[in-house]
């Protein structure tokens, strides 16, 4: 199988949207170089491979395996364990594999509630018999099995050993290409690989530092949701009351979202040294919220003013942990008997 001597490349999706694959193909004409340098060993999105092909490879056969997507069900876990065994270098590719991303937002609720929303409660659903996916179904021909839907979404590094991480939802093509070049040089010309465990394809400062919008002293009386106001071009979105995760998010994307009037969503993950991206953002927001008082003010009145300002931030957990839930300090919501007490985000206002 190693006849042509080319290094073997694999890319596999776990619980993912496919955006990481698109971003990979968006490296443009460089894809021809990738094709010339590598032999594809497994890449279900663009080529016809079967799991049994991977099963047939010797351990460590794949030189570079990119895995995108979170671990949401037993099939995801099974596949990444298999690919870990068959790969020399395993990369957590994109925010889902890195820190859970959008799939892990369902860690704020339960498996049952997620299935109910997807198969029963959603207004567009027509399911009169109330059929829910069952891991096992007996049919005359035997037992049918589908993957087991997990209660807790995990990041890749919570399931298997990960060599490198490339952040982003999705990672930016120029960053992907830069990383591929380093790996290719190491594999084909004896270049040295980066030390194990590092974050590749990202900057080292906050998104704000690569954002061109004009910034001033920040004091915000209330926040708005993106549809509620039309931001003034050229001016920092936070200053205009739009939540922008820039201060708590690692650079590397080129601050693309704020340039088009959409606050940074936080997809490159926390800054170095920050253990919990959500809490870093919460602190930043609390610092610029312009509700204060004077000595002697009534403390209850003050609390009420702060509560009113906080009311303008709908769904704080979902906003501050939009991408990093699986890597947050709490990781998931507690659901032992207090599920009913878990408040749903306030009604859309």
């Amino acid at each position: 199988m190693n006849a042509n001597g080319k290094p073997k490349l694999a890319m596999y999706w776990a619980s993912a949207c496919g955006g990481c694959e698109i971003s990979t193909l968006n490296i443009g004409e460089h894809i021809l170089t990738v094709d010339a340098v590598f032999d594809l060993a497994f890449f279900p999105c663009i080529a016809d491979f079967k799991v049994k092909d991977v099963l047939g490879y010797p351990d460590g056969y794949i030189d570079l395996c990119l895995i995108n997507g979170a671990i949401r069900n037993s099939e995801n876990e099974e596949m990444v364990r298999l690919l870990r065994r068959k790969s020399k270098l395993l990369v957590a590719f994109g925010s889902c594999a890195y820190e859970g991303c959008i799939p892990a937002l369902s860690n704020l609720t339960t498996r049952d509630a997620t299935l109910r929303a997807a198969y029963l409660d959603n207004p567009s659903i027509d399911n009169p018999a109330g059929t829910l996916p069952q891991p096992h179904t007996a049919v005359p021909e035997g037992d049918l099995e589908i993957p087991f839907f997990y209660h807790t979404v995990k990041s890749l590094d919570q399931v298997v050993d990960v060599d490198y991480t490339i952040p982003g939802c999705p990672p930016e093509p120029h960053q992907i290409w830069a990383v591929l070049q380093v790996v290719v040089a190491a594999l084909t010309q004896g270049g040295s690989l980066p030390p194990k465990g590092v974050l590749l394809g990202a900057g080292s400062v906050a998104v704000c530092e690569e954002c061109a919008l004009a910034k001033h002293e920040k004091a915000v009386a209330r926040f708005y949701r993106p549809y509620q106001i039309r931001p003034e071009p050229g001016l920092c979105l936070l200053e205009q009351g739009l939540i922008c995760m820039g201060p708590a998010t690692l650079s590397g994307c080129g601050a693309l979202c704020p340039q088009v009037g959409m606050g940074c969503r936080g997809c490159y993950g926390p800054l170095p040294g920050a253990e919990d991206q959500g809490m870093r953002m919460l602190t930043a927001i609390a610092s610029i919220l312009d509700v204060s008082g004077r000595p002697g003010d009534n403390e209850l009145d003050l609390e009420r003013k702060v509560e009113a300002a906080a009311d303008t931030i709908v769904d704080p957990a979902g906003t501050f942990y939009r991408f990093s839930m699986a890597h947050s300090l709490l990781r998931r919501a507690r659901t032992d008997g207090v599920e009913a007490a878990v408040p749903q985000p306030a009604v859309w206002s």
Binding site: V291, E303, V306, E307, A333, V342
Partner: peptide, 24 residues
């Protein structure tokens, strides 16, 4: 001077966030 106003704002946001995690 102003820092405990920040504490109050952080605390208010924190309590709301923790409620979503099921923490009383």
């Amino acid at each position: 001077l102003e820092q405990n106003y920040k504490t109050l704002r952080r605390f208010t946001l924190l309590r709301r966030t923790l409620a979503q995690f099921g923490i009383e």
